[in-house]
Design a protein around this nucleic acid. Structure first.
Lengths: 223, 223, 223, 223
DNA sequence: GATGAATGAGGCTTCATTCAT
DNA sequence: TATGAATGAAGCCTCATTCAT
């Protein structure tokens, strides 16, 4: 009555992880609505009822998949940012870590952005609060960094929250474009560099107009 | 057999437009899967069969909704860009026109980005070619503008296609953030200005020509 | 109020015949259930409503098609039989005329035998009485011929009604086999001869066993 | 995953048989198109979905019904024929066994002959190959018997395949006539005898070796 | 706990038929 | 009288969920 057997508990955790992995791959391929519980059960090599005994409903399973992913994303991004001291470095880490994660979890972005939030525009958040709070916590860190950057005069004075949205969205959007592009996965590193440069310095050439496009002395000396 | 009847034809077009409008609102609120044809028929005040006589299937109705919207967006964006001579002005027009459109058609973005493209990542494009081609035509114009800007030395030398994706994505992303934000519609103009400024000049304050990201002398003085 | 215009009436009859022809071909290809009124209307180049103004309902149209065909079949068979004096000749005419008709109207047999009579076994006859009466009138003639043949000692003493069924069924069945056989239309004449010979003389060799199968003196001297 | 459970399997087979029986009766009464899956489910006292879990679709259920029946028919007919040594005896067995089976399964004939094969005359066989092959295997046996009979001089030299079609059709046709006849089931044995006699010896009285059909001396004395 | 057969609400779609023009 | 857009009942099928074993 006291301990539910440590082995039992260990197995249980293993099964949960296994099912989550399988569910992730199915949801990724089919989307929430087209995916069926039977499909998931079969690929996971469990009975239908077993899936239900672990996760209650399709919806809950789905939310758990998302939550797990968001947690991983947020944890790795915030960890990386914390380990870097400079404001600019933190920003670069944000871009780099998040895009790398999305590149490895392409489908997830779509799931997160799209199907889940479809309902009632007014209610807006249909994913469990926990998930949104987690994701928002990452954005808060980012906003804070930007805000401090502005205070220090590193960044121009802008609405930090808008900039956060822009940067978060910018990375999401590029990842989405990977999904849609017929081309095989394009070069991650190139995209990261372009985004970073764009975000930090903008598209315009400053000071005097450069002579011609072959002339890249002071700009192209990176990587 | 004899006359195509002008009045009949006019009514037909009216009905089609009406149904498309209704369908748009339902799909927007519910998403493709949750929306039902009966819902749409009822709100359009037509019999179920009538909807089917105009659009062969739920899928086709959905695609027509998307196609109509994409056409409107692309047409207004390209028109605005064409009417502006300078490269920088064209870019500003792109941002302004697209974001204004999305602001008035929030839901549409989600539809376009999300559910439709869920299936088979390898097949990639499940919307009718026409739609993608239309949208791509807009992106092509944008890429061309950027490329010419680079040639003229107005923009830094970057991969024009990546920049296109970034700018397109940036605008999408901000619009998405409107959807998700609990706040009532935030100020459109402010966001447009921020994005434009950000895209053109970047976030960094320019004290001297930016070094590359390895150069972190004066910024690293925080905990 | 007195004459509905002779031209009008003539046209009307023409339209009816045209629609019946088209309906026949559609029903033949698709069967009663798969055929749609729209299909028929389109092929007939009339509006849907026009078809209904002529025939009231799909069912009635169908029945009219069948009735027309049955009338043609019965009329030509009875006419041919009437024109032949001998009992045996009448039988041969029956077989020949009916099978030739079926060969040219393959589909019809299936329609007549199958779909129409599907319902309630107890009610049995779902085609209008008229049709059955017409067909039965042909069978009556046949029964009568057989009966008289028996009286005259030309035919063995058998239940004339059973023999009628057998002969009628035999011809139907062979025609059905044409429908189902993958082979292109097999030789009509050969089948007619075989059936006729079989019906009149049976399969058995009489008197003493013939020597071998190459020996066909007194049997194969026909045609 | 572990045991296929013998009891479960037994129940499963029972359910399948039960549903097939019910479906058979409904299809028989209503025909393929008029029958509804709900009807079948209700009469079988299962939920609609259960029927679908056993047979994937209405069509497949229908085909299974036919297949099961054809198998029974063919197996019993070939078994009976195999157990009889003489050629003539085999033929009599064929007629007797098949007609007895059809008498007990009247509706089946209609199903087999009719609705199923309605579509595209060119494609011809829309029932699963298996069914046609099974039925053809029976006809092959029959053809073979007839052919051997011809070799032995028991039967007249005729095209064995046409004779097969004729005999097969003859039995089908008589059974069909049972369906259509308002009379209660007529005497099976009488019909079998008549058919057998007719097939073996023909309808004509044999006074002398039959002449061919041009010879009509003593018959033509009627009006 | 694990299993998977059974359930049945609910969605998409078809098509005979009507009726205003 | 001819037209064909509109109607809506009814059918097939899916799939999340339950529950007896």
């Amino acid at each position: 009555m006291i301990k539910p057997t440590p082995r039992r508990e260990r197995e249980r955790q293993q099964h949960i992880r296994h099912i989550l992995d399988v569910a992730e791959s199915i949801f990724a391929k089919e989307g929430f609505f087209r995916a069926t519980m039977r499909q998931i059960a079969q690929k996971a090599e469990f009975a239908l009822g077993t899936i239900y005994s672990y996760f209650g409903s399709k919806r809950q399973l789905y939310e758990k998949v998302i939550e797990t992913k968001v947690n991983k994303l947020v944890d790795s991004v915030t960890k990386e940012m914390a380990e870097t001291p400079s404001v600019q470095g933190k920003l670069e880490k944000f871009i780099h870590t998040k895009m790398t994660f999305l590149h490895k979890n392409l489908f997830f972005l779509r799931l997160y952005l799209a199907e889940v939030d479809v309902p009632r525009l007014d209610i807006s958040h249909s994913l469990p609060k926990k998930v949104h709070e987690k994701y928002d916590s990452m954005l808060c860190v980012l906003t804070d960094v930007i805000w401090r950057g502005i205070q220090k005069g590193v960044f121009k004075p802008m609405d930090a929250r808008v900039v956060t949205k822009a940067l978060d969205g910018l990375t999401n959007a590029l990842a989405l474009s990977w999904l849609n592009s017929a081309e095989a996965h394009p070069s991650l590193e190139t995209d990261i560099n372009t985004i970073t440069e764009l975000f930090l310095n903008g598209a315009l050439v400053h000071q005097e107009p450069t002579q011609n496009s072959n002339d890249r002395k002071e700009i192209c000396n990176e990587s």
